[in-house]
């Protein structure tokens, strides 16, 4: 019951000619320790939704609860909340602003009121978690590659020791190796630290591979909520709302139509491989995962 949204609605520019409803009557609960993906076409309300999770925006209607408490209730400490629920924006490298990597990552803990030593301790733990070594501490953020910058930004949020990590398209613009690096890192953090992760993504292949639960947003409403396999089963409906299923899911449906007895909900290369080999009476002997 980590984060709960109850009948949440959000309207931009209410009462003006530009009034636009971004969210309509959304109800959902993200439990402690879950790894949740959010997908939806551009303008479907994803970004608005995640900014409600750590009180960057106040819902027009409805309630947002964190650990059972109404975060817009009287006396609620929203500044404190933002230390628990960390948000990494899209293209976070545009927000690197300090002169060197260490100072940038220390910014969060410094605002939590920690001493200089504690800040640096937290920062070095976070940097090592994202695989940035000491030789980088004094480098200017501008000297880093795209993937490295992105990891430093994630470290900046991790240094505050959040319980929930929300990321808005953390792999946009990265090459395949950089993409895997970031996603493996998030997945490790989820497993080892039990941190709750909310991942907004435009890559159906990525969410199929990593998340446990997938929420689909469409025109400000929750359209689907289930495991990736369950959600991608509705691939025809997903296309109507600007999305798609992973390539292999389409293939499995094609094969099924040709009379192969395959698992048509397979949504990753691994699942598809196992299922196709089984049809041909073979087992996966390569031993790779």
């Amino acid at each position: 019951m980590s984060i709960t949204l109850e009948n949440v609605g959000f309207v931009y520019g209410a009462g003006s000619v530009y009034e636009k409803t971004a969210l309509k009557d959304v109800n959902l609960t993200i439990e402690d320790g879950e790894f949740v993906g959010i997908i939806g076409h551009t303008g479907s309300g994803k970004s608005t939704l995640i900014q409600l999770f750590n009180a960057l925006m106040q819902p027009t209607t409805g309630k947002v609860y964190y650990q059972g408490k109404d975060i817009w209730g009287p006396g609620y400490n929203r500044r404190e909340l933002r230390f628990h629920v960390g948000l990494v924006f899209q293209y976070p490298e545009h927000q690197l602003f300090e002169t060197d990597v260490m100072s940038d990552v220390c910014f969060g803990p410094k605002n939590q009121g920690l001493s200089k030593e504690e800040c640096e301790h937290q920062a070095s733990l976070a940097l090592s978690a994202v695989g940035i070594g000491e030789d980088y501490y004094k480098k200017s953020p501008f000297e880093l590659s795209g993937g490295e910058k992105r990891r430093v930004c994630i470290a900046g949020v991790l240094a505050m020791n959040p319980d929930v990590l929300i990321m808005d398209e953390p792999t946009a613009g990265l090459d395949p190796a950089g993409r895997d690096e970031i996603l493996d890192l998030i997945s490790r953090m989820h497993k080892n630290r039990g941190i709750t992760v909310v991942l907004v993504s435009h890559s159906m292949e990525d969410v199929a591979r990593y998340v446990e639960r997938l929420i689909v947003m469409n025109d400000g409403e929750k359209a689907y909520d289930g495991t990736p396999r369950e959600v991608f089963r509705n691939y025809e409906e997903l296309e109507k709302i600007g999305l798609s299923a992973p390539q292999v899911t389409y293939l499995m449906h094609d094969l099924k139509a040709k009379g192969f007895d395959v698992d048509e909900d397979a949504s990753t290369v691994e699942e598809a491989k196992t299922s196709i080999l089984k049809v041909f009476g073979m087992t996966d002997s390569s031993g790779e995962s």
Binding site: P176, E205, P246, Q247, K273, I276, S285
Partner: peptide, 20 residues
């Protein structure tokens, strides 16, 4: 080279490696 191949190509490669 830090790149990938299309998902279908990857599946084909894996299936071939497994003996198909």
């Amino acid at each position: 080279l830090g790149l990938a191949v299309p998902q279908i190509t990857m599946l084909g490669y894996e299936l071939k490696k497994a003996g198909l």
